[in-house]
Simulated scan of single mutants.
Amino acid sequence: MLKAKDLRDKSLDELKADVIDMRKELFAWVNDAKQSKKIDQPSFAKNKRREIARVLTVIREKELEIR
């Protein structure tokens, strides 16, 4: 699990790259779950969406600091 405190140490570009990677991972997981009709980790999608939201929040904080 990612902590906001750890994310604040990363640069803005690294955070944006992390969001892209997490979204790709979530997309792939959802597609696999739909195709196999079997979900190994039901909470994976929920946790991944929360991580994405956490990173986006830190990105927004950094963008407001720059202004």
Results as ranks from 00 to 15, higher is better:
A45K: 12
A45L: 04
Q35E: 11
L2I: 04
R54Y: 04
K10E: 05
D13L: 00
N47T: 11
L26V: 07
K48G: 09
K34D: 11
E63S: 06
L15A: 12
L15H: 10
F27M: 12
A28K: 15
K48M: 11
R67F: 13
K16Y: 15
P42S: 10
R8S: 06
D40Q: 09
S36H: 03
K37I: 01
A45N: 11
A28L: 12
R8M: 04
Q35F: 09
R50Q: 15
E61Y: 01
I59N: 04
K3S: 14
K3I: 07
Q35M: 09
N31T: 08
F27W: 12
E61R: 03
E25N: 06
R50N: 15
F27T: 15
E14M: 07
M22P: 02
L15D: 13
L26K: 12
W29T: 13
L26M: 13
V30D: 14
R67Y: 15
I66E: 14
Q41M: 04
E51I: 00
E51N: 08
M22Y: 10
R49H: 07
M22L: 07
Q41S: 08
K38V: 03
R54A: 11
A28W: 14
D18M: 05
R50F: 10
V55P: 05
V30Q: 13
K3Q: 14
L2D: 05
K37T: 10
I66T: 13
Q35I: 05
K16D: 15
V30I: 10
D32H: 09
E14G: 05
K62P: 01
I20E: 15
F44W: 05
Q41W: 05
S36V: 01
L12Y: 01
W29D: 14
K24F: 04
A4R: 05
D21K: 06
R23M: 06
A45M: 07
W29Y: 13
V55C: 08
D6R: 04
F44Y: 11
L26G: 13
L2C: 02
A28Q: 15
D32A: 07
K46F: 12
Q35H: 11
I20Y: 14
Q41A: 10
A28N: 15
K48R: 11
Q35C: 04
A45Y: 11
L7H: 06
K3H: 12
R8D: 09
E25I: 00
V58D: 12
E63L: 07
M1Q: 14
